[in-house]
């Protein structure tokens, strides 16, 4: 078997990103949509770390750390919004909550 190179990690990252994109497209539960977004962010992190190792730079890891910090803030705000919507409308079905839809 071939040794594992950055190409393998980038391929795995692309697969995980596409699976997350499918979930964002077909799910109606906003919490699961959030989880799929987290999956896509994780896939991007894997690509960043793999490219950083490939190019011999620590910058990929630094960017991955900042992505994690931003993801933490995003989840806190997003779940707060979901709880708030559930309180006022008793449902969080993404097709029922269409206040901003034209």
């Amino acid at each position: 078997m071939d040794p594992i190179t950055a190409t393998h990690y980038i391929g795995l990252s692309a697969i995980l990103f596409a699976i997350g994109a499918v979930g964002v497209g077909i799910k109606r539960n906003p919490i699961v949509i959030f989880m799929c977004i987290e999956l896509m962010l994780n896939a991007a992190n894997l690509a960043l770390v793999a490219m950083g190792k490939h190019l011999g730079s620590i910058s990929g890891q630094m960017m991955a750390i900042f992505v994690m910090a931003v993801a933490a803030a995003e989840v806190a705000i997003g779940l707060g919004i979901i709880v708030s919507i559930f309180r006022s409308r008793e449902t969080i079905d993404i097709d029922e909550v269409n206040l901003l839809k034209l």
């Binding site: 190409t7 990103f17 596409a18 994109a21 499918v22 497209g25 077909i26 690509a47 190019l55």
Partner: peptide, 26 residues
């Protein structure tokens, strides 16, 4: 959604395979 993600996967894998020249590994 499945079709769009398949296109996305193909283009991502293609871009990844293009960008990683084997000689550039440090």
């Amino acid at each position: 959604a499945l079709l769009a993600s398949a296109v996305l996967l193909g283009s991502l894998a293609f871009a990844g395979a293009l960008k990683i020249a084997p000689g550039r590994a440090v």
